[in-house]
Design a protein around this nucleic acid. Sequence first.
DNA 1: ACTTATAATAAGAATATTCTTATATTCAAA
DNA 2: TTTGAATATAAGAATATTCTTATTATAAGT
Lengths: 107, 107
Amino acid sequence: MTARCMVDVDDEKLERGARCIKMLAHPLRLKILMVIGTGEVPVSGILEAIGTSQSNVSQHLGQMRDKGILIARRDANQVFYRVREPKVFELLALVRELFCEPGGAGR
Amino acid sequence: MTARCMVDVDDEKLERGARCIKMLAHPLRLKILMVIGTGEVPVSGILEAIGTSQSNVSQHLGQMRDKGILIARRDANQVFYRVREPKVFELLALVRELFCEPGGAGR
DNA sequence: ACTTATAATAAGAATATTCTTATATTCAAA
DNA sequence: TTTGAATATAAGAATATTCTTATTATAAGT
């Protein structure tokens, strides 16, 4: 009677879940999500806020876009990104509670 | 006024968060968490439920133990594992909603 | 047509993760 | 005090991720 949370999840779904979680499992991608927040931010704005190369940011954005975490909208020669599903932030808040608070898990 | 969720998180915390999320970002580790669930399960039980080698399971358990996600208790010559913080399951449920439901994100 | 600004992609070296094989540890029972 | 059962660790090949450098695409303005 254990494993009630995701019970009966077949291996394919496990793979999919893991692949998606992996998108959040990188400090720059977390930072990008934080910078975008609930708004819509042009790549230039993200670049400003994050300390790495244009190419690197673009590739991280691309990954999250491809996985459906971010949505891109082009306006003239700027591209604006937003977080598709605000529940991502609940997830990040939980991560923070779990792993960043005193008494939490993270090592 | 964006980035309200984890704003003011310094780079070290981002690294830590990412490292912890990474612990959830693997299909076998997800499966192990599901198998353990809210109970306390001996390694032998986990082994039975999961389709890979003893060594591989042990190494995944070790990772999650080291990161403080699992707690191990030895009783005679068995080792029992449990999930330290049940909130992990809220997190997994959110992941499921976000990435495994129709209309969700996961690709 | 050029040029410039903005963003994406390609290629590949550097690095990290995963899994396999072999070996070691721990404890109980004989 | 050996043996066996249960689990952990070491070493390294196989694989995947990350980031850098160079190039390409896209759209606006000149």
